Amino acid sequence: MDGLGGSSTETPVSKKLHEFSRIYQYYLDKTTPHAVPRWVGTAIIALIYGIRVYFVQGFYIITYGLGIYILNLLIGFLTPLIDPELEASDGAVLPTKGSDEFKPFIRRLPEFKFWHTITKAFCIAFVMTFFSVFDVPVFWPILLCYWVVLFVLTMKRQIAHMIKYRYVPFSIGKQKYGGKKSGAAASGSRAD
């Protein structure tokens, strides 16, 4: 309702798009806690894309662009939200000494957005392989070599950044602390 005449200005097409958007968001939200199945699905989509490019023997420029885009996303995924090199120290920085206060690693690009964007990129690239206008003839080994060099140099810089500011962008599961609990369990087992 627009409030003036009481009539809706939405067209049937915009209503359908809005309904599709809500349904898409609903199912997207349901996948949030299921990280492993999400990534397996993305790996399957990537495999299908790779098979398509292999059998068509073309669209290498699309694949190169996809590789550069994924490399860019990977850098965002591995970089902290507050980068000590770029922002002035206003209290919220990564600890650089053992005596510094622990601050959790917060990614510039969260895992879910990283997954979602990569999956969309593979789907878009797959659709692009059905249009011959995107099949630009290139010598693919040159593109592959250039991408590998770019990947190595970028990762070298990112790993040096991780070492300099002492952060690890990966954590697998919740950390378990032994402390007094393991000692009490050991003494309880001796009483039997």
Rank of each mutant, 00 (worst) to 15 (best):
residue 148 V to W: 12
residue 72 N to Y: 13
residue 176 K to N: 13
residue 118 I to H: 12
residue 143 L to V: 00
residue 43 A to K: 01
residue 70 I to F: 14
residue 150 L to K: 07
residue 164 K to F: 07
residue 106 I to Y: 14
residue 57 Q to G: 07
residue 103 K to C: 09
residue 41 G to K: 05
residue 123 C to Q: 08
residue 76 G to H: 00
residue 25 Q to A: 12
residue 73 L to D: 02
residue 109 L to H: 02
residue 137 P to I: 00
residue 32 T to P: 03
residue 97 K to P: 01
residue 68 I to N: 07
residue 95 P to G: 04
residue 160 A to I: 01
residue 110 P to W: 04
residue 165 Y to M: 11
residue 141 P to D: 06
residue 50 G to T: 01
residue 144 L to V: 14
residue 14 S to T: 05
residue 138 V to S: 02
residue 75 I to R: 10
residue 62 I to H: 01
residue 180 K to P: 06
residue 139 F to V: 05
residue 66 L to Y: 04
residue 192 D to T: 11
residue 169 P to F: 06
residue 165 Y to E: 04
residue 28 L to R: 09
residue 5 G to P: 03
residue 184 A to C: 04
residue 144 L to T: 15
residue 146 Y to L: 15
residue 140 W to N: 01
residue 82 I to R: 11
residue 171 S to C: 08
residue 19 E to R: 06
residue 44 I to A: 10
residue 109 L to P: 00
residue 73 L to G: 03
residue 10 E to A: 14
residue 70 I to H: 10
residue 65 G to I: 08
residue 101 E to V: 14
residue 8 S to P: 03
residue 105 F to W: 03
residue 55 F to P: 03
residue 166 R to A: 15
residue 182 S to T: 11
residue 41 G to A: 09
residue 101 E to T: 11
residue 143 L to S: 02
residue 67 G to E: 04
residue 2 D to F: 06
residue 66 L to G: 00
residue 57 Q to D: 13
residue 91 G to A: 04
residue 117 T to A: 14
residue 157 R to V: 08
residue 64 Y to G: 03
residue 109 L to I: 04
residue 174 K to T: 13
residue 150 L to F: 11
residue 43 A to T: 00
residue 156 K to H: 15
residue 176 K to R: 13
residue 100 D to S: 13
residue 153 L to C: 11
residue 73 L to N: 02
residue 154 T to W: 07
residue 76 G to P: 00
residue 123 C to E: 06
residue 81 L to K: 15
residue 126 F to I: 10
residue 13 V to P: 00
residue 29 D to N: 11
residue 150 L to D: 07
residue 108 R to K: 10
residue 119 T to K: 12
residue 189 S to H: 09
residue 151 F to M: 09
residue 180 K to V: 08
residue 23 I to N: 06
residue 130 F to I: 02
residue 190 R to E: 14
residue 133 V to W: 08
residue 63 T to S: 14
residue 63 T to D: 06
residue 139 F to R: 05
residue 52 R to M: 12
residue 114 F to K: 01
residue 54 Y to A: 14
residue 129 T to A: 05
residue 89 S to G: 10
residue 92 A to Q: 14
